[in-house]
Design a protein around this nucleic acid. Sequence first.
DNA 1: TGAGTCTTTGCAACCGGTTGCATTCCAAGG
DNA 2: CCTTGGAATGCAACCGGTTGCAAAGACTCA
Lengths: 337, 337
Amino acid sequence: MGVTLKDVAELAGVSRSAVSRTFTQGASVSPKTRRKVERAAAKLGYQPNALASSLTTGRTKLVGLIADNFHNPIFLQVFDLFTRGLQERGLRPLLVNLSEERDPEASLRMLRQYSVDGVIVASSTLPPTFPRAFRDAGVPVVHSFGRFSSMPEVHVVGIDNVECGRMAARALIARGHRHIGFLGGPATASSTQDRYRGFGEVVAGDPALRVDVTYAAAYSFEAGRAEMARELARGPAEAYFCGDDVLSIGALSAVQSAGLTVPDDLGIVGLNDMEMAGWQNIDLTTIHQPVRQIIDTSIDVVVSLLDDAGRLPEARLFPCRLVERGTLKPPSDRTDR
Amino acid sequence: MGVTLKDVAELAGVSRSAVSRTFTQGASVSPKTRRKVERAAAKLGYQPNALASSLTTGRTKLVGLIADNFHNPIFLQVFDLFTRGLQERGLRPLLVNLSEERDPEASLRMLRQYSVDGVIVASSTLPPTFPRAFRDAGVPVVHSFGRFSSMPEVHVVGIDNVECGRMAARALIARGHRHIGFLGGPATASSTQDRYRGFGEVVAGDPALRVDVTYAAAYSFEAGRAEMARELARGPAEAYFCGDDVLSIGALSAVQSAGLTVPDDLGIVGLNDMEMAGWQNIDLTTIHQPVRQIIDTSIDVVVSLLDDAGRLPEARLFPCRLVERGTLKPPSDRTDR
DNA sequence: TGAGTCTTTGCAACCGGTTGCATTCCAAGG
DNA sequence: CCTTGGAATGCAACCGGTTGCAAAGACTCA
């Protein structure tokens, strides 16, 4: 069914090696042979079989892209950037959906069967044991949106979640709020834990503050709505730092349903600054996460690992910044800092 | 680096064929050999190389998943369902992002190089020439969310967009609106054209109606917002059928920014019923598109094509239904139908 | 025990490429 | 005109599997 090297070689009247060489960068072929081969290949509509060549070269140009949250709109952007970035570098993303997977080993096995050149784990909720499994199997791996560590076990690209937590706490305090809330993502997620740590640090210094802490079940709209509804029933704080934007939007929805006004009755600051956060009917004040940079860097790292698999794991962090929109009052006059 | 068939064979003290056979469904191996092989394989951590075997079997279990819109949240759900569905059937999605691609030939070539077993084109905006190119290349292809035709050139799974257009028009009329609008997606998309056709059909019968027609530049929030802003400046209709949900939400945003109330000042009905449409702070009245069924069916079709590539192309349509939420007034008393 | 049948097994060729090595070709230099 | 050396080419082995085929083994039944 497919046209093979042999067919082209026969038509061009050269050896199979010659054909192979004309399609290989930097191999030595005379212009004459090259021309003959190219003509024959064009006539037959020949496409080299990438899989067959991977057998000898050991390179498939396949990259596993692993995600575990398909309910957070930020991931649409993440997929867009990853797929485009990988394509531009001649790599192909093999998408793995881990959202209902109980056994990460299964996807590890699968990706090994397809001998992917590398793996990108795009998740802030997967435990580090997961990317580590790839490293242990000798597969280059980078954990995007993963947890910072000064001695990371695998390459990590992301943000300083602790600092984001601080930034959020300071923002709430600067608005004059004294009763503030931390409405985190899943308590088991490292991102949640780190953000809480930073938040807690700042808050700990001020005995005048009252702080509520709760955790949503997932980084999703529903979880945010449910958790905020619970808070409202319990008697809410004046303003909340929510785990991320989609959680914030869920919370926002609960607040509005309760007939309260944002930001006057209750303020919210999110994290991510995903596309939707800027939509006028959402208009979320949030901490911007430089998704594009994180993804570009992740790809660069995985590409560099293709040549130098043994490189020592590094953690790269990108700075975040507060984006002021409509869900948090402007800073109060009492200039706390 | 990798453990191969040979290694296992040597450790188990059998031939390579024996090892291959224990890993192949339905091959004849004695329980004794199988046990030996399995033990050896486990000890070495052997993983059969799927790519190498694809060379002889002609099956890669790779399926190209092609999308061209990464700004519409519905696609997150689409990716979720496709990846899960494919994984469950032992197939691997090779994701292709066509959003900035000028040359579809390039992705065709690429997917052929990876000898994908089949291709799913998930888009209502790509022209039929695109999936046709795969068919012509002998690659099984199904066009999800594609245009209906009684004599389709490739397998199509989707909805009856013409009927959706009718449904929307009837819904607007039933609410007592006499000045109604069609705010479509890109005019070049077949989905837009078909929806307009149905809409036009219903509307044509009633000379008392006044109808505005405009098209947004894309199925995206921004395009919907911009187009509705233009309508508002021009003097809007009483209620609109918007191309899809994300367009509707953009339009909604423009309406709210203009200080108008929905649905009293202006009504909106969308299409898709994506997850977000049900979020309480959006609460969009919309036509439900059975995404899950479409995707499950698409996968079934592509799987069946793996065994019987020559099957005649069919178009499968699924019925849609109106989901009443808060962006369209309840039907008026004058019971038009 | 032996014939007949069915199952298991290994050999070797093959899938579609790549690549080390030896050979041939060609042009420049003496 | 003959060397000499680099470039171009083909041969054949190899990548990691699968599979048709023939031989060997196991089992049934007489």
